[in-house]
Simulated scan of single mutants.
Amino acid sequence: MNYPDFNPASPNTPLSDAELQQLDELLASLPSEAAMNIEGMDGYLTGLWLLPGVLERLGTAGWLPLVWGGDGDEAAPFPSQRQRKNTTVLVLRHLQSLACQWRDDAEHWEPIFSVAEQGEREWVDARDWCTGFLQATDLAAEAWEPLWDDPEIGPLLVPIALLGGEGQDDGEAADLDDPEVLDSLSRSVPDAVLALLARRGGR
């Protein structure tokens, strides 16, 4: 399957809220249990972009199909090639909008997390986002390994590992049943991204 390469010089046309919802609903409708939701996709694209050269080395065909759980025969898992093409365009547009915001206005970047409202309190859940992020790091494990061990970056990545299901022991993972712990860990995730941006030179 031939896919267009990601072009950092392409026009920046961020997805509207309606387009994000449309993409989320489309991914949820696909007959693939491995398809990401919009939160997982946002984390996945973030993880791919944060290390220079990863997108180019993998090539679009090496990373894009994982968004919908992989390609099958003909147009599968999509009902048509047109829908696959339209989805490809939406994902690449979202990646470009992320890259442009990190370059031009990183301080106002907000990841796509699940947020539940209870009275005046908002509870943040970044588990799907972090799962997607970790899928990206798996595609470039050797390049990410020094960052996990880095004395500055490594501790900031711990909440992402815990929320993405890679906690070091069952005791840490069980803490996610506590909404306070889940909310606190989730709110710390952007700190890791901003630190990685600074390391990348994207701010």
Rank of each mutant, 00 (worst) to 15 (best):
L15P: 04
E19I: 02
E19D: 15
L27Q: 14
A28I: 10
L30I: 13
P31E: 12
S32R: 11
E33R: 14
A34T: 12
N37F: 04
E39A: 10
E39V: 00
T46V: 11
L48K: 03
L50R: 06
L50N: 00
L51M: 14
R57G: 04
T60M: 04
T60E: 01
P65K: 03
L66V: 13
G69D: 06
D71P: 11
D71C: 13
G72P: 03
G72I: 00
D73W: 02
D73V: 10
A76S: 14
S80R: 02
H94L: 13
L95F: 05
L98C: 14
D104N: 15
E110M: 08
G119F: 05
E122T: 00
W123S: 10
W129D: 03
T131A: 06
T131L: 05
L139S: 02
A140E: 08
L147P: 00
L147A: 08
P151R: 05
V158R: 07
A161W: 02
A161T: 01
G164A: 03
E166H: 04
D175K: 11
D177Q: 15
D177P: 08
D178C: 13
L182I: 00
S184E: 15
S184K: 14
S188E: 15
A192Y: 06
L194Y: 02
G201Q: 02
